[in-house]
């Protein structure tokens, strides 16, 4: 793989492995693809909306930071 970027290599690949990141998954919530983070046993929190439809970004149920219960998610799919 060749990176063509103006970011210095050290910034892209830092030395110390930071494992503080929570588990992220891609889910489909009412037809909207979302990148979510597991917050606790019942809920996930929206990190990013992956849809290309700008209307989906206006939906307050899936705005970044919103919590969605596992029960409402149709299919959980791992990355």
């Amino acid at each position: 793989m060749i990176l063509y970027t103006m970011m210095p290599y050290e910034l892209v690949f830092p030395d110390e492995a930071d494992s503080g990141m929570k588990q992220q998954q891609i889910v489909n919530y009412q037809g909207i693809p979302l990148l979510v983070e597991l917050t606790d046993q019942q809920n996930v929190q929206v990190i990013r909306i992956l849809s290309s439809d700008p209307q989906h970004f206006m939906d307050e149920r899936v705005c970044p930071g919103a919590k969605i219960s596992f029960g409402n998610l149709e299919g959980m799919s791992a990355i």
Binding site: L3, T5, M7, V12, Q30, G31, S52, D53, P54, Q55, H56, D59
Partner: peptide, 17 residues
């Protein structure tokens, strides 16, 4: 479940790396 009003124009954001 909302019947989303389909947008004629879609938008892709290319951010970060």
């Amino acid at each position: 479940p909302q019947l989303s009003t389909d947008s004629k124009i879609h938008c892709l954001t290319i951010i970060g790396q």
